[in-house]
């Protein structure tokens, strides 16, 4: 259907604030690209520039090989799902979905066919005569999706579409969006601040920070090899444990793997820790003594909040745990699960 290409795209607001400082992303056809980052990182601005709702200050945005910088949102052939759904409150569900088609001058019977087919897909058929305020949050979300799908555009744009739903519904819709996107094969850009959504939905994951791309790649590659301390602490929950190195040493560590010369921070994920293991497993790995400050059992796993090597770390242990607050524990991270970052925060 379409590719989306961003080349060195910048956004400078009048007044000099630079929201996006030069971003290049190439999204292949039919793939779902997730932009993730903390609030204010420029991800929404970027999405709105692809939509044509914001002007592009520098660089080019092309859809399907055609530069669209100077083209309005209507002609870009995109559809957008908004955070607050932005349904027309005075129109019935049917008209909400049909409005975009009518504006494009599609014949009535064709509109009717499309709206009904889409409603069928989204299980909205029985709600077509209702108004948005008579719908639940999840149903409104579906209507917003329907309004985008019914147009069969070149690109879907999602602006934090699930952030207004409760946790259970969010999980359900996440799966649905993914399968729908697969089925329809429409290139999509999805903005979220939720790293779980980002990990599960993305074909291409883009981690953004302060107007720049921190890392771009497949979600699991990013998880396994975070390019910077920022990505390491943003992707994964709870975030990666990061401890500062002082002149190549970690205070209070029992044993240390070989440390690269320019490393300033050592990192390991809570889920990569082993508690109490010794002997062969610890060979060449990181081993340190930790004092437990708090225990958080969540059922399938428990999180231990500990103090170690002059910093705070989180350790994940499976299932129930007998560990109590105040215990001293040996914590081990295998060599291949230990990450090093330089003084500029970049991976070494």
């Amino acid at each position: 259907m379409a590719t989306v290409d961003l080349k060195d795209v910048k956004k400078v607001y009048p007044g000099g604030v630079e929201a996006v400082k030069g971003v290049s992303i190439a999204i292949p056809d039919k793939e779902l690209c997730v932009l993730v980052g903390p609030s204010g990182c420029g991800k929404s601005t970027l999405l709105r520039m692809i939509a044509g709702l914001e002007t592009i200050s520098a660089g080019t945005c092309s859809i399907d090989g055609k530069v669209v910088n100077a083209i309005g949102p209507t002609e870009r052939d995109i559809a957008m799902v908004f955070q607050n759904y932005a349904l027309y409150p005075h129109m019935k569900v049917y008209d909400n979905m049909a409005y975009g088609l009518r504006n494009r001058g599609m014949p009535k019977d064709e509109i009717d066919k499309r709206v009904r087919t889409t409603a069928e897909t989204l299980e909205l058929a029985h709600l077509l005569e209702r108004r948005p305020r008579e719908l639940s949050g999840g149903q409104r979300q579906r209507v917003a999706m329907g309004r985008a799908i019914v147009r069969s555009p070149k690109v879907f744009l999602f602006d934090e579409p699930l952030s207004n739903l409760d946790a259970k519904l969010r999980g359900q819709m996440r799966v649905e969006i993914k399968s729908l996107q697969r089925k329809l094969g429409v290139t999509s850009v999805y903005v979220t601040h939720d790293q779980l959504e980002a990990m599960t939905l993305a074909d291409v994951l883009v981690v953004m920070n302060a107007g720049l791309v921190e890392q771009l790649g497949a979600p699991l590659d990013i998880y396994e090899k975070p390019a910077s301390t920022f990505v390491a602490s943003f992707i994964g929950a709870p975030p990666m444990n990061l401890l500062p190195l002082r002149s190549g040493q970690l205070e209070g560590a029992v044993s240390l793997p070989a440390i690269p010369a320019n490393a300033a921070t050592i990192g390991f994920r809570p889920e990569d820790c082993e508690v109490g293991a010794d002997g062969a497993a610890s060979e060449g790995g990181l081993r340190l003594m930790a004092r437990v400050l708090g225990v958080e059992p969540v059922g399938a796993e428990s999180f231990l909040y500990c103090e170690a090597a002059g910093g705070r770390i989180v350790v994940r242990v499976p299932g129930r745990t007998a560990v109590a607050v105040g215990d001293q524990l040996p914590v081990l991270a295998r060599r291949e699960k230990v990450h090093f970052f330089g003084s500029d925060g970049k991976r070494v």
């Binding site: 949102p73 957008m80 607050n84 932005a86 409005y99 309004r147």
Partner: peptide
């Protein structure tokens, strides 16, 4: 809401 205005623009109004 601004989103409503934008939704209309995307919808070709």
């Amino acid at each position: 809401p601004g989103e409503l205005v934008e939704a209309a623009r995307v919808d070709g109004a």
